[in-house]
Computed example of a mutant assay.
Amino acid sequence: MPESTTRAWRTVLEHIETDLLEGRLGPGDRLPSERDLSADLGVGRSSVREALRVLEVMGLIRTATGSGPQAGAIVIATPTGGLSALLRLQVAAQGFPLADVVKTRLVLEDAVAAALAADPDRDTGEAHRILAAMDSEALTSGEFLALDAQLHLALAEASGNAVIAAMMAGLRTAIESYVQAGAEAIADWSVMAARLRAEHRALVAAIDAGDVESARELVRTHITGYYTAAGLTRAPSDRP
C-alpha cells in the first residue's frame, strides 16, 4: 500500500478514535457516511473503507450495506472492547512468549489486587460465585482452569480499571493455553487443584479484608507458583 494511502486511512482511524475517546461517539451511535468522512477529512473513499474495515475487525463497529436504519457503520463497543479484540487477534496470529505473559500477569494482577483491597466499596461477589463453582470435585482439569482464568478476569473487572480488564480479557486465550499445557505435567491434579483452591480463597479473603500487601504477595506467589510447579518456568532461586 502506498505511503500516502496508508497515511490517509490512518487519518480516518485517528479521527474516529478521538471521537470515541472524547465521548462524541459511543455504543449505538452511527458513524458519518463514507461520503461525509471522505469530504470532511479530505481523503479518498477507499481510505475511509479501509479504516472502517480495521475498526470492524477490532470489534468496535458493525457495518451493513444497503439502506434503512441498520445500514452504514454503527459503534457496538467501547475502545476497551477493541483493545481486547486486538490482543485476542495478536494471540491467535502468533501468540506471546510465556515469559512475557507471566511478567505481564504479575504487573497487571498486582495492580488489581492492590486496587481492590484498597477500595472500601469493592464488589467481589462474582469472584465468590466462581470460587464456589471451583469447589466441585467433578471438574476436569480443563474445566477447573477455565474457571481459574474466569476468576482472575472477574477480579480485574471488579477493580474498576477498564484498561487492565481489557488487557486481561485479551490475554485470556494465551493464559489459558499455557496453564492448560502445564496441567499435563502435574502428576497429581487433585493435589494441585486443592492447592489452587486454597490460594484463590486466601487471595480473595485478603482483598475482602482490605489487606493490600497480603493481597499483592498472595497473587504474585499464586501466579509464579503454578508456572513453576508445572515446569513452565524456573523457581526464582534457580535463576541466574
Rank of each mutant, 00 (worst) to 15 (best):
H152D: 13
E3G: 07
D148H: 14
S84A: 15
R62C: 07
L31Q: 10
T5E: 14
I186V: 15
R62T: 11
V101K: 03
L153S: 13
L151R: 05
R30A: 13
A149P: 00
E109M: 10
G95D: 14
A77V: 01
G95Q: 12
Q70Y: 07
L108R: 11
E176S: 11
G225P: 08
L86R: 06
A64Y: 06
E56F: 07
L52Y: 02
A165I: 03
E176R: 15
A206N: 06
P120I: 03
L87I: 08
R45L: 06
T224R: 09
P2R: 04
L116T: 02
E199P: 09
H128L: 08
G81H: 02
S136G: 10
A154S: 15
L13S: 06
M1G: 15
A185V: 05
A118P: 01
S46Y: 01
T65W: 03
V57D: 08
R53F: 12
L153I: 04
W189Q: 14
T11K: 13
L20V: 01
G26S: 13
T224M: 12
V101F: 07
A111C: 09
R49A: 14
A118V: 06
L108C: 08
H222W: 04
M1E: 09
I186G: 10
G81F: 02
A187G: 05
S84Y: 09
S47V: 03
H152V: 05
A114R: 15
T173D: 14
L13Y: 15
L147Y: 11
W9I: 07
R239S: 10
V75S: 00
W9S: 05
T63F: 05
A202L: 12
D208N: 06
D19I: 00
Y178D: 12
P2D: 15
D123S: 11
E14W: 01
D208S: 05
L155D: 03
L196V: 15
A77L: 05
I16H: 03
P27F: 04
M167P: 00
S177Q: 11
T140E: 11
A183Y: 04
G59H: 08
E213G: 05
A162W: 02
P97S: 11
T18Q: 13
L98E: 06
D40F: 02
A113E: 08
W189M: 09
D110E: 14
Y226C: 06
V43A: 12
Y178A: 14
S67T: 15
V112T: 09
D238E: 15
L155S: 02
L55K: 01
A209G: 07
E22R: 12
V101G: 02
V107H: 11
V219H: 07
R216T: 12
L145S: 04
E14L: 12
I76H: 00
L232D: 08
V48L: 06
T11H: 04
L131Y: 08
E14V: 10
P27S: 01
A113Y: 03
G28P: 01
M167Q: 13
T124C: 13
R7V: 10
G170I: 01
L21Y: 09
R105F: 02
L171R: 00
R105Q: 14
I175S: 09
L13D: 00
L21M: 07
T5H: 13
V54P: 00
L151G: 11
F144P: 12
L131H: 08
F96T: 10
M168P: 01
L203G: 06
R30P: 04
V43T: 07
D29K: 03
I16N: 02
G66Q: 03
R234E: 15
V12E: 09
G231V: 06
